[in-house]
Design a protein around this nucleic acid. Structure first.
Lengths: 228, 228
DNA sequence: ATGGTTAATATGTCTAGACATAATGCAAGT
DNA sequence: ACTTGCATTATGTCTAGACATATTAACCAT
């Protein structure tokens, strides 16, 4: 029976958990481990690289590999298109375009996207419905520079979905906060103002510059679930 | 100048974004790409594996590699120990153990951890302080079976931190919700009841069974930030 | 002591070739 | 028509060896 990289990883992990190699300790080099397990160094490397990605060990050239002092847990969040999110919950999906206009974006918006003050941007307000009931209110500022010549009809395809399939997003960030429902949100989504809402704020950048800043106000009770 | 796997990845990504290989399309096999770029197949494999992990392409043995129809964006959340989170914000850290007792856990708690109804569990209530002000109220149900013979003193080291360094956590999940502050939370953290709070609920399982269920109620204004 | 240079070393990556594994689609048998 | 089995094929993994790169520690010169 020959060992694979996953078995190497399992054994290394076992030794770390058993405190044979305590936090902060220096682990034998790849060459030594390769010899011990009777595999090629590349196989050990594969296993160690995986553990490093998981945050269990820290590796530095020349300095060697050591067990992480305080292993940082990493959770992965998969952000689906809202339509698929809703359908995945077994509910019917629909959306309404509540607003679509071009105007000068407020300073906080341009600032966060790194655009000059007073840039004219497309403002979109979309209410996503799940099973006929409000699911998410999306308010979006979109950089018109990234849109094609005949701009897409966001009443037919939601901006959320159009962007995923037509713009190559490079990087971005999401922040989750709990906020009281604004009067506008309360009115549109049919709830009392001040109701706690889970709000996700995303900025995304593409190859040709800033793309969009979007605020997703989720209906009460919404859970964002992650596994690790 | 010789190509590395990151350059292969960049070029493949460029072709996908440029729609030379549109969503759903079948990409040439590793062998073909290796020949085209003049590198070994393992190098192409490294690049493709990375793109698959990022959700840009989907790979299946025999069936080949195709461009993802709706690229699922994946964001990574790093969950540090609360103490380091606070120190990382340039604030002093402190915590107070408000409650520490053993009692029968409520049914929802045992159910979520997969323990028998009425199991006696350790209940801990910890207030984490940042710069002397309430930061997070942690309410935790801990499976006493995983604790060592002389149980640790959670007044000296927070349970949060003790668990990370002493229990090998295998899997778990986190859910974020927005909830109104309970009377207890409002009292302890000094705010009006009903104030929207960002709540994280985590369950974790170790090698020897369920470990803990914890609820972290964050002070108003708290942001959970992720990058992708 | 102090600062800069150099050699040693552990990890990172690559090559060329091999076998393993899984999924597909065709062919044969019921 | 339907199922079963098998050959095919693309990805997954491994080996043994090589060179690249970052970083440390030792050394030397000021």
């Amino acid at each position: 029976m020959t060992l694979g990289w996953e078995e190497i990883r399992a054994e290394v992990l076992r030794r770390i958990r058993a405190r044979e190699w305590p936090p902060g300790a220096l682990i034998p080099g790849e060459e030594a481990l390769a010899e011990e397990f009777g595999v090629a160094r590349a196989t050990v490397n594969r296993a160690m690289r995986d553990l490093a990605e998981a945050g269990v060990i820290e590796r530095k050239k020349r300095a060697g590999t050591r067990v992480a002092e305080l292993p940082v847990r990493r959770a992965r969040l998969e952000i689906p298109v809202i339509r698929l999110d809703v359908l995945g919950r077994g509910l019917t999906y629909d959306f309404k375009l509540l607003a679509d206009r071009v105007e000068r974006a407020p300073i906080p918006v341009t600032a966060r996207l790194g655009l000059p003050e007073g840039t004219a941007m497309r403002y979109l307000e979309t209410l996503h419905l799940a099973g006929g009931r409000p699911f998410v209110l999306e308010t979006r500022w979109l950089n018109p520079a990234i849109l094609p010549a005949p701009p897409p009809d966001f009443a037919a395809v939601s901006a959320n979905e159009w962007l995923v399939t037509h713009v190559s997003l490079v990087s971005g960030d999401i922040a989750f906060t709990a906020e009281p429902a604004t009067p506008r949100e309360a009115e549109v989504m049919g709830m009392a103002p001040g109701t706690p809402l889970l709000v996700a704020e995303r900025t995304t950048h593409g190859t040709t510059g800033p793309v969009t800043l979007v605020r997703l106000a989720h209906a009460p009770g919404h859970r964002v679930q992650m596994t690790f």
